[in-house]
Simulated scan of single mutants.
Amino acid sequence: MFKIKHIPYKQFLITLLVGSLLIGCKSSKKINYFQDEKGHEIEENITLFQPTIQFGDILTINVASTEPEAALPFNIYESQIGNLARPLPYIVNADGEINFPGLGKFKVAQLTIKQVTDELHKKLLPYLNNPIVNVRLNNFRVSVLGEVRNPGSYSVQSERINILEAIAQAGDLTIYGKRKTVTLIREQNGKRTSTTIDLTDKNLFSSPYYYLAQNDIIYVESNKTRVNASAVGPNTGIIVSTLSILISLAAILVD
């Protein structure tokens, strides 16, 4: 028979408590956003970000004037039912153009909504008295995938959203999501780029990827805990039961 060394119960509890605190400190570093060990305040200017129009974007353009009848030829509508008429959208073609009534082909790619509005206003001045142009981007949406609570595609009505707002719409990251290596996939000017973003770094606020463009995809990778849990699969229950028995035995032996 081998002798079991007696461990004082209080010492066992203290060791367990210290170990738990150490694990907690380590995990908080992996979970908290915007970590700053110095704790100083940072003042930054807010960027007036505006997305640029890309091939395949869908625009709604409405033209009005102090002379409503004169503005009619510059608007296109679906067939009118009763007193309701819905404006037909413009789809930006492969050349980055739309075919605007009365003005012909008009290049809009790489322009912001404001720039398109200003350019159309200038082009309409010879035809209309005080033209009013309203341009809207219909297909502004972002997708959030991976370790978030509600993955999916989200429409953006205001045409302005930052990465934190997009993640918030998806219900925030789960505790299994890697916060230091979030991937942002963006398609612009015929090219697809993939960028790694660290959500624990306060420099995120000054990053060119802080504000999102239409059709951006955010992917949150699973951490090792999630991967290991998936690998265990159906054996998880057996392992938990075994650990419970071992802890119970340890409690009896040190009593």
Rank of each mutant, 00 (worst) to 15 (best):
H121A: 09
L184T: 09
G19V: 03
Q50E: 15
I197K: 10
N162A: 04
P87R: 03
D255S: 15
G56T: 00
T196C: 07
K178V: 10
I218T: 02
Y210I: 01
I46N: 00
P126R: 06
N45D: 14
T181C: 00
L173F: 10
L164V: 15
F12Q: 05
P126L: 09
A85Y: 09
I247E: 12
S28E: 12
V63G: 05
A166R: 02
Y9M: 10
F55A: 04
Y219P: 07
Q188G: 06
L212E: 05
Y219T: 13
S79K: 11
I98A: 01
D198I: 05
Q11N: 10
V254E: 05
A251D: 12
A231P: 00
E67S: 06
D216K: 01
T47N: 12
Y176L: 12
I175V: 13
P89R: 01
Q11Y: 13
N228P: 01
I4Y: 11
Y9G: 02
I197D: 06
I245F: 08
Y9R: 12
F55M: 08
T183N: 04
V108M: 04
I98Y: 08
E147T: 04
G82E: 11
K224N: 13
N139A: 02
N83E: 13
L164T: 03
I252A: 08
G237H: 06
T195L: 07
F100W: 07
R141S: 14
N32G: 02
I185F: 10
L22Q: 07
N235F: 15
I46Y: 08
A251N: 14
I42K: 12
S206N: 15
A251R: 06
R136D: 03
R86H: 05
Y127F: 15
P131Y: 11
L249E: 04
D172Y: 13
N130S: 11
G96F: 03
R136G: 00
A250E: 13
T52W: 09
I161V: 14
S65I: 05
R226P: 01
K30Y: 07
F49A: 08
Q35C: 09
I98K: 06
P89C: 02
A94Y: 15
K191F: 14
D172F: 13
Y90K: 05
T181A: 14
F106Q: 03
K180G: 08
N130E: 14
S206I: 15
T200D: 05
I245G: 00
A250S: 11
L145F: 08
I98C: 05
D198R: 02
I91P: 02
L72T: 13
A250I: 06
S65A: 09
N93V: 08
K38E: 07
Q115G: 05
L199C: 05
P73H: 01
S206D: 10
P68G: 03
F12M: 12
I239Q: 06
D118P: 06
G56F: 13
T196G: 01
N189M: 13
Q214T: 12
R179H: 00
A170H: 10
L249R: 09
H6N: 08
I23L: 12
T183A: 10
S153A: 15
F12T: 10
A250T: 13
T15I: 15
Q214N: 15
T236Q: 09
S207Y: 02
D118F: 02
